[in-house]
């Protein structure tokens, strides 16, 4: 850090880092996709109380929620080849990226299974009863009535998770993956302007996060369009409106109070 701050490096690195967004988003996208599958599979035994599998999914979820993602990465990257060697499978030639995606997928799967379970549980029981009363089978009731409503409920949690995963992928650099963070470590080795590199790195993460947040807010609005304003006032996602009203109300009060 012997060099003085130079803003031109921020722009320079910003542009140079941009291509590596692709790798970061690949990790995020793949692990979410696989994680969604895992999450659904793991949530089912707990939702339907299937005896032995239920315990397995509990253990899985608490392990991946209870240990840091960095340690999980190390365990998979260093531990799994050793384990597989015991059964004579050689994975030393498999690129590190696959291990990273695998670890993140299991990690997100654990969190997703919990939010799927929560969202399905949050759908009013009466909705299922109505579906049955109309004559639907269990699958029809789940697919046509419960799932669409659960998706709407799960979106805010899902959005948080996606953004968390996005930021967590920065740890993949510790296994030598050249994603955003990895690249930002190597870019300034010549110039020694590390601070500028980190600044542009932070900017990139921030911009992607904001974009994702906006995207999910739009999706949520679309999925929950059936909830009138009346209902939506109570929701955290539209708490903004409520806050605004509260806030402007208080301001008016103060103004009035100021008058003698």
């Amino acid at each position: 850090m012997g060099t003085s701050f130079d803003i031109s490096y921020v722009f320079d690195y910003f542009v140079k880092l941009l291509p590596y967004i692709r790798i970061t988003l690949t990790i995020v996208g793949c692990s979410l996709l696989i994680g969604l599958g895992i999450g659904l599979l793991v949530a089912l035994p707990r939702m339907y109380r299937i005896p032995v599998l239920q315990r397995f999914s509990q253990v899985y979820v608490s392990f991946f929620r209870g240990t840091p993602i960095l340690i999980q990465l190390f365990l998979f990257y260093y531990g799994m080849p050793e384990m597989l060697k015991l059964i004579h499978i050689d994975v030393t030639k498999v690129p590190a990226l696959y291990f990273v995606i695998f670890a993140y997928a299991l990690h997100t799967g654990a969190f997703l299974s919990e939010s799927i379970r929560g969202a399905v549980g949050a759908v009013d029981r009466g909705q299922v009863e109505a579906a049955y009363a109309v004559g639907m089978t269990g699958y029809q009731a789940f697919g046509r009535i419960v799932l669409p409503q659960a998706l709407g409920i799960a979106i805010p949690v899902f959005a948080n998770l996606v953004i968390a995963v996005l930021k967590d992928t920065s740890l993949a650099f510790s296994l030598g993956i050249m994603e955003l963070t990895g690249k930002s470590q190597t870019l300034p080795t010549m110039s020694q302007h590390f601070f500028e590199a980190y600044l542009s790195l932070a900017l990139i993460y921030f911009i992607i996060s904001i974009a994702l947040e906006k995207l999910f807010f739009a999706v949520e609005r679309r999925l929950l369009r059936y909830e009138g304003d009346r209902d939506r006032d109570g929701r955290a996602a539209s708490g903004r409106k409520w806050l605004n009203r509260r806030f402007s109300g208080r301001l008016e009060l103060q103004k009035e109070g100021a008058r003698p």
């Binding site: 109505a130 579906a131 009363a133 009535i145 669409p148 409503q149 709407g152």
Partner: peptide
């Protein structure tokens, strides 16, 4: 139903 139980998303 007492609580109507209309499909909320329809």
């Amino acid at each position: 139903f007492q609580q109507y139980n209309l499909f909320k998303h329809k």
